[in-house]
Design a protein around this nucleic acid. Structure first.
Lengths: 339, 339
DNA sequence: AGCAACGCAGTTATGGATAACAATCCTAGG
DNA sequence: CCTAGGATTGTTATCCATAACTGCGTTGCT
């Protein structure tokens, strides 16, 4: 049990008075301006230490117009992509001397718009949008017109603000890997198509099959959760002709593998499974999961760098910053069963 | 390619001028003060809408001394506990009308102190610490003396500021479950003991065995990662007398299971494995993982509620808010092999 | 010697909103 | 008919730090 009383700390003028200088001089010491005599500087620093003074960043933000804060918008779900992106953003921000302000939203346009508003409203210097915008694109663009913005979902209409991993290549690599192993065709469990990542993967999978002259089976849909993977796995596992499945996320792939295993289909002897993301657990599933590695942490970092560049120099020219993912072959894929 | 120029938006005085009222009246409309005539209110709101005005929260925070922002300190790792706690905090904050400011740190005391300083410095109204403090406890306590603080790691010295799940019970339930199945004793793969959660589990496991009059085997140590689980699993799997393992996190448990499987030890026929957390993937491992469920999301929410209560009324009396976890039995545990 | 440039510190204005106080106007009770 | 008190709106001071400008003494260069 405890009770407590909180109050404001000393202000710059208190430090100034105690050190016998003006507030401006304290400010100069704090901001490491060159024109301060060494004795003065030391005296001020001593008083600061003694009084336990901390500069009030709110006041500073008000006068400079910069809060040294970056806003991040994510969906209110807890999947690997979201959390590692958030981590990358935080690390990148710290390196750049920024703080991170995060808000979450649901899929609805209104919710996204509200969330972005909250960030602007809060006075962030820039925004990283890591959620699908869909119909909200225009309104969000209007709100963020005055603020540097980076998008990691690749939602249409924000092409030159995009930072991320090439999802077309990711899906192509995964699909090709299975075809190269000798599978006649590849089935696909897609993510929610509201996500542009998910629809990119879906389209690229389809195109890859078409270009190879293969039959394109109907795709199934999940919601990124392992549970949805399991549900769809129970369907796919019942069809004998299914020998290769490209799953749009590792987490769903875990569910698929579980379902197939329960149905008595061996992996990879009977069915091959490929995921996307290369989550930390992918190497430790049974069997270890073949997947396409894309570092969300790296994406987060790059998004921050891009954003900070734009904050520092608003007139800078920007182009999309998209990198290619790499295939990680493990034990969940093999040639199709003979016959 | 695009180039852009960013500028400040309209201020309250602009709205006031356009509506033919004083700034104070605009403020009253925005803050829903009762004494504003309906006509005036409507006129002001119309102008606000027309000009696309947004109140500047920085200025507001400066004068009110409240930023409506909560600071969260986490470790710079990407595990399930961290990310779901962060999610819970964000949801809780949104409900309470707060925004979240997150910073990460490494394990070192200096890093923790820096991170907390950054938050205070940033002007947050309260702080949630979700990282082990260790030797930094005293200095952190000093820094946070003026700010409401909640701790979810259970680090010593902050007893009455703790919010979380009872780790003693978690470890006891897991250990007892294995003993009840008939295992002679239970081995333990612990988390990093810098974490008070990890050391609580370790101690409780030991006590449970002692109270049951069982032999206490030497414990092994991991770092929460699946990889460390795998490494330790390769050791445990080589010892024939090991029939039951209590792993301090689900993610490490995945690694342990993978290692045991590779060594040809069947789960649960030869070895039973219990984890902690009940991560989303736990139900979809092979075999599905028996574990102790603790909702980090809920912990995050409760931490926010507690914190907001303290912010609102600094003199409020506080006690620790610790809830009990529940055992989730799946297929990774069974009676020991006969003989 | 003379004047520009610089080093150093102080003064004033500014950023945007709100609290506290002041000034109207109106209404109801005496 | 007068006034106390409420409703409504305006005015001024304040929050804290920084930018821009000012003042003065010193250094440097021709």
């Amino acid at each position: 049990m405890s009770t407590q009383q909180y109050e404001r700390g000393p202000a710059m003028r208190d430090v100034a008075a105690a050190a016998g200088v003006s507030a401006q001089t304290v400010s100069r010491v704090l901001n490491e301006h060159p024109n301060v005599q060494d004795g003065t500087r030391r005296r001020v620093l001593a008083v600061i230490d003694e009084l336990g003074y901390r500069r009030n960043n709110t006041a500073r933000a008000l006068v400079t117009g910069r809060s040294k804060t970056i806003g991040v918008l994510t969906l209110a779900t807890n999947n690997y992509a979201r959390s590692s992106l958030a981590l990358g953003v935080e690390l990148g921000a710290r390196e750049a001397g920024y703080t991170v302000n995060s808000v979450t939203s649901s899929l609805s346009s209104q919710s996204v718009i509200d969330a972005v508003s909250r960030l602007v409203y809060q006075g962030v210097d820039g925004i990283i949008i890591a959620a699908p915008l869909q119909e909200a694109v225009e309104q969000v663009a209007k709100i963020t017109a005055r603020i540097p913005t980076v998008n990691t979902d690749g939602s249409a209409g924000l092409g030159d603000r995009a930072v991320g991993v090439d999802q077309d290549i990711a899906a192509m690599v995964a699909t090709k890997h299975l075809l190269d192993l000798g599978h006649k065709t590849v089935w696909h469990l897609a993510g929610p198509i509201e996500w542009s990542d998910a629809s990119s993967r879906l389209n690229s999978w389809r195109r890859t099959l078409q270009e190879a002259g293969r039959e394109v089976p109907p795709e199934l849909h999940g919601d990124w959760s392992p549970e949805s993977g399991y549900r769809n796995g129970l369907i796919l596992g019942r069809m004998p002709e299914v020998t290769a499945i490209f799953v749009a996320s590792d987490e769903m792939a875990f569910g698929v593998i579980r379902a197939l295993t329960e149905l008595g289909r061996r992996i990879p002897e009977d069915v091959s499974v490929v995921g996307i993301d290369d989550i930390d657990l992918a190497a430790y599933s049974t069997p270890p999961l073949t997947t396409v590695r894309q570092s969300f942490e790296d994406t987060g970092r790059r998004a921050v760098h891009r954003l900070v560049a734009q904050i520092t120099n608003p007139k800078i020219a920007t182009t999309a910053d998209i990198v290619a993912p790499t295939l990680v072959v493990r034990a969940s894929t093999a040639p199709p069963p003979a016959g």
